[in-house]
Nucleic acid binder design. Structure first.
Lengths: 300, 300
DNA sequence: ATAATGTCTTTTATCGTGAAAAAACATTTT
DNA sequence: AAAATGTTTTTTCACGATAAAAGACATTAT
């Protein structure tokens, strides 16, 4: 096996959803843009749609013949990229306990366990190293630094520095900047979520990320923007295993965001600073509370 | 060619220098620690030393027979790791002009041009991406973002944030911390360099890096410490091509460092802040002045 | 003439492989 | 018994090869 065709499979699945909406599909280049793949992949998708009787395809005409059935879709797990598979697998091991700080990471073993080649694992580890959880020993193995309290504190320290600065930059943006419209839209989404928090609380983390990324982008600094990847990754996995008081936590956070948004709209630096600090403080609290003092994290 | 033996060659060369100092070499594990390699490599080195008549080796006894001659050493260029070779080659192209922002980077072409495998180039690019100069398009090529004025400004913004904080943390360190002795030692080195600046000005950049790393380490934050890698890399290459007023620049910088050191030793936060700001300001000036393309990218 | 389709070429993603280097284990020496 | 040496196994590093995917070029349709 040299390369999985997950790009094709994922795009195919997304392409199927388009069939519900139209009688005939647009041109190949247009479909490529729509699905975010090249024409080569678009054509593979169209070929299969034709073979399975979903469309009649003749040059420019791509007529929809029937609605897609569940069995037309490729299984979800086949649409993931190798990098995603490795990351998930690695994080599961990391959080599943037994992953103590100082432990060494074996590329070959990881590769065998996950069932992929060593190259992919190596590349993953290199990419992952920027999160500060692992470290390479020259000419030798990787060392796990562990998801410790120290890590969480170091992470939040930077986060707070960056976000306070970004928030200040945001508030100083001119009236006609497009971000204000983005902020308005996010505010509406927050209000909608707040009013249905009892049932939709689990939708918060996605909204949270979009909100903070918008603010960070105002810094116009690639290092700040990129650092949010680290935060997002940590919070993503953190939320997966720490479900304690999820509803309550998210309810509080939504309200904090709304106050934060109001402060930004006031464009008063002092108010922005205060609202930002308040939210960041509780975010840090949430993260820290899930890490037992001076010890390795154990999942529930 | 599967893997170059540069680790062996480099360690061998370093091992040769030990022969001048002693009548006989220590034990294998000891040599391993000394040279930073495994016993396997130590034994290869000893074998060659024996073959070339440098030592007589019989179990524990490793008697030096003669002093190493220039031809005993492996050529310098064979002691570099592939990663170093690729980085140098890549940076040369980047700085040698013709490398405009937006240009796409071709892994295969780079690999062919440098004469290495694609895997090594890929891994290099992934590692290099954290410097913020290149960016990956999913399932496609890398894009060069360019060493622009905007880049320099974003870099220095973070640097200033981090260093001010680190310097403050440094000054707040207890009297009995080992860093004060390190600082004293660096101060002496600075004074020595200052008194012979006319001839030794080119030694400054190495001293500069050690000094700033010491300060950053006081932050006790891995993200801050790691970020210095980005700064060090940029300054390293920057100095290689911008030799204008090098002596004058370094002379000023040494004096600024001495003032900065004095401020740290005073442990007065205000003085530290002022000295740090002053030095960072001129460092930024130096970097910016060397970026010709004054393409109207204005600081915020 | 423009924009689509059809065809061909290039590049990326991933694997298995083999040598270098590390690490583990066994044996000998002090 | 501890520490060294000798031997074997394992892991890392780097390569070429190959299918997937992107991209470029040629041709055809509006």
């Amino acid at each position: 096996m040299s390369k999985s065709n997950n790009v094709y499979k994922d795009a195919f699945n997304r392409g199927l959803r388009l069939l519900d909406e139209t009688r005939s599909l647009p041109s190949e280049p247009e479909l490529g843009t729509l699905l975010g793949v090249s024409r080569t992949t678009v054509r593979s998708i169209l070929s299969r749609m034709e073979e399975t009787g979903l469309i009649a395809w003749n040059k420019r005409s791509k007529t929809v013949l029937r609605a897609p059935k569940p069995e037309d879709f490729f299984p979800e797990e086949e649409t993931d990229s190798l990098a995603e598979i490795i990351e998930r697998s690695f994080m599961r091991r990391l959080l599943a306990g037994g992953a103590e700080a100082g432990m060494q990471i074996n590329e070959l073993e990881l590769a065998r366990e996950i069932g992929v080649g060593t190259t992919s694992v190596r590349e993953f580890l290199i990419r992952f190293s920027r999160f500060g959880l692992i470290e390479k020993r020259r000419n030798s193995h990787w060392v796990l630094k562990g998801f410790t309290r120290a890590f969480a504190l170091e992470l939040t320290e930077i986060r707070e520095m960056f976000e306070l600065r970004s928030a200040a930059a945001f508030a100083a943006l001119p009236e006609d900047s497009a971000v204000w419209a983005d902020l308005d839209r996010l505010e509406i989404e927050h209000r909608q979520l707040a009013s249905a928090i009892a049932t939709r609380f689990n939708e918060f983390s996605e909204l949270d990320e979009r909100f903070h990324r918008l603010i960070h982008r105002a810094s116009h600094n690639r290092f700040i923007v990129d650092f949010y990847d680290v935060i997002a990754m940590i919070f993503h996995y953190h939320y997966q295993w720490n479900k304690a008081q999820e509803r309550e936590r998210n309810e509080v956070a939504v309200q904090e965001h709304l106050a934060y948004i109001a402060a930004l709209k006031s464009r008063d630096p002092a108010k922005v600073d205060a609202a930002c600090r308040k939210h960041l403080k509780s975010a840090r609290q949430t993260l820290l509370s899930s890490i037992p003092e001076g010890r390795q994290v154990q999942p529930a």
